[in-house]
Nucleic acid binder design. Structure first.
Lengths: 244, 244
DNA sequence: ACAAAAGTGTTATCTTTACACCCATGT
DNA sequence: ACATGGGTGTAAAGATAACACTTTTGT
């Protein structure tokens, strides 16, 4: 378990990522089940190397977990309560998994590291769920997309972190026009509308929504999308390159 | 200079505060001149005790510097570049001040502390400038309110931090209705308008501004304010207690 | 009475919402 | 031809901006 000794991480600082994806009219979050007896679920976190920018550390963690580069991410909040320690959780975990070797473990470097107080910098990421190949670390047995309405009890204050991320996403979405990052490169206006309806849990009038999005002037109209459905084919759009 | 050894601070984490005040139709920021030869200016920063919430640390620092309790503050951004070190500045400072004792200083605990890489959590605060009694620490010779258009070259990346704080303030002000925190408890609508005009550097139509602010429904009308001016006396207002 | 600034009300303009209408597509 | 969903236009409703008018205050 002493896996950290050789890495030169900044002490007592960590990064927590809430990775949002969208599929089947559902907003989802990537949740890990930890590689221990007992049901321990967590979000995607990691640490910051001494010679690494905090933003880069977040990117690195996201790339490790999703296998894709150039992910859209926003730093949204710092979680800095004095009692933000993994200690309660780790002790529970040790009790359930390593009952015999208590002494040995609690004196280890990693135990000291993991149970200390952490100041966590929260990021949320928006990804095209189709492009993601969720990747396990040595600490988790499985990693899955969870409907945001169906998130299990997470360890620590991860449920709060998730809630805060969702709130920030909603606040940012019109301002930063970042909803498009949940979609593939090419998409129809209707797909954008479905994302908005999913996130804000309300319906929009189709014709007005179309106008609103197009009047933002950030989309470029491409070819039509023939789906084989017996109706008029919608146009595909992509994010316009912004020229200055 | 070894003042830190006995304090149990979190390593490599710091807090930086941008304290805004308002006076004479001018938005101002509290700037310290450091207690060393050479012109070194800085914002108000500090460190986080092990048993202290990050938010509480920010409050403590603000209270120390301003002498007032219950300050309005917002955590707005984390500054986490890998090269965010005071080293360049500290070495310059030592060169200008302690040329003889180089060796002794650079091996000290405080030198190691101050020159290491820091992850800084940025807060901005809004205060009633009249209530503030700016308080020196052992590190600064003077501390003054600076017009935001007339901020000197600050050490490190403090100029960037200030700019980011100002941007966040502008973004937040309508959403969080926090401009009132720059005023005394009782104020006139006209004073609010002047703050808005100062911050956004544009004028508002008096009558419409009045409506906009009052329709927010967060103000309580009090008595009139007789100034001795030969015109109709304006009403005073205060922030309404929100009942649930 | 008058100047100066506060408060109120009305009209015009712009934005948002609702909805009617036509168009393309596959059966 | 028709059912289905896409795209455009237009009118109603609502929000914002411009401005006229009245009120209060001290000289």
């Amino acid at each position: 378990m002493d896996v950290l000794k050789d890495k030169n991480y900044v002490n007592q600082s960590s990064i927590e990522c809430v990775i949002f994806g969208y599929e089947d009219k559902t907003l989802k979050v990537l949740v890990s089940k930890l590689n221990f007896k007992g049901d321990f679920y967590a979000l995607q976190g990691g640490f910051i190397l001494q010679e690494e920018d905090v933003d880069e550390a977040a990117k690195r963690i996201l790339e490790e977990r999703t296998g894709i580069k150039g992910i859209y991410l926003e730093q949204f909040k710092v979680f800095g309560k004095a009692d933000r320690k993994r200690k309660t959780f780790i002790d529970k975990l040790i009790e359930a998994n390593y009952l015999e070797q208590g002494e040995e473990i609690t004196s280890s470097f990693s135990y000291q590291w993991f149970t200390s107080r952490f100041i966590s910098i929260g990021y949320y990421a928006l990804v095209d769920i189709k492009k993601v190949s969720p990747t396990l670390t040595e600490l988790d047995t499985s990693i899955e997309w969870c409907d945001i309405h169906d998130i299990p009890d997470l360890i620590m204050d991860y449920n709060d972190i998730f809630e805060a991320a969702l709130t920030s996403l909603k606040e940012d979405i019109d301002q930063k026009l970042n909803a498009f990052n949940l979609l593939p490169e090419k998409f129809t206006i209707n797909e954008v509308q479905e994302i908005y309806e999913t996130i804000f849990e309300k319906t929009y009038v189709r014709t007005n929504f179309q106008k609103k999005i197009l009047e933002m002037n950030v989309l470029e109209r491409l070819e039509k999308k023939y789906t084989g459905a017996k109706n008029k084919a919608p146009y595909l759009y992509k994010l316009r390159e912004l020229k200055y």
